[in-house]
Write a protein that binds this DNA or RNA. Structure first.
Lengths: 148, 148
DNA sequence: ATTCATGCAAATCGTTTGCAACCCA
DNA sequence: TGGGTTGCAAACGATTTGCATGAAT
């Protein structure tokens, strides 16, 4: 059993949940497709290759659970469905998304320069920021080159 | 007719759309409830006071149109429905949202300190940022005071 | 008059839920 | 064994669409 599988097992046990074949399969698919921002339906299609009998509802339930346990992150790229990525928050691998409004591609930035802004917010708004989500909209390199 | 109504009329005419009573009513409601982040259903309820015969579908269609014309902004606070606010982008009144994960309240920050980050993104990622959306999650003042 | 917009109801889509059968701890 | 978990199908809620009627330019 891999490192991550063990970690998952522990996380589930701590909260009184069971490590089932289906849950393993769902997490494995997300891990095998890092940076692809798979939607629930896409995850379902991939999981079916390993687990042909799995139901869509089970995938939804697994994703809901992983999201609550903060193993994964729900993303919203305004395309009408939920997408997910592994939560690397604890390792401080926070990143933001660059969404190209021309071709729809999504890439990532590793930067995190929001600390100063968060300090200001605490002072001015008395609001304690614990997390943030940032989406940048614009034109990717490929689209900009095509434009010329 | 107010400034904004005129602006709306012009925006619609430019694109070959008509200024109908219903569209006026929808925009008026959003304007009359600034900073309230009304959901479609809430907008519908308010609009019915002025326009009792209006159908929910018409509200959806008006909001879709205004969003495409960038008169309004669609917001997503993860509560399962679309919310909207007037787009003050052109006036550079850009703001971000502070979402309290305890009580669910949403407030606003006027700050915009992302320019430096956007410059860096252009250099490192060759991605030209035209717009961005930022959501901060944390604890509002009221909830933090209750905690103590 | 023409063309676009509306209201209504039905259709759609993503997601959730109830329940009997099932399986991990 | 027993309570969490699954698969299935039905239910759900938000949003969209088809169509005949109605209104704005």
């Amino acid at each position: 059993m891999s490192n991550l599988a063990n970690e998952l097992k522990e996380q589930l046990k701590e909260n009184g949940y069971k490590l089932t074949t289906q849950r393993r399969a769902v997490l494995d698919v997300i891990l095998e497709h890092e940076n692809e921002h798979l939607s629930t339906e896409e995850i379902y299609e991939y999981v079916k290759l390993k687990c042909p009998e799995i139901g869509l509802a089970t995938v939804y339930r697994a994703l809901l659970l992983f999201d609550r346990l903060e193993l994964i992150y729900k993303l919203d790229f305004d395309d009408g469905c939920s997408r997910y990525e592994i939560n690397r928050h604890k390792e401080d691998h926070r990143h933001h998304h660059l969404i190209c409004t021309q071709c729809g591609s999504v890439s990532e930035v590793e930067e995190d320069l929001l600390e100063t802004l968060e300090e200001e917010i605490l002072i001015k708004n008395k609001f304690l920021v614990k997390d943030h989500r940032v989406k940048f909209y614009g034109y990717c390199q490929a689209c900009r080159e095509k434009e010329e």
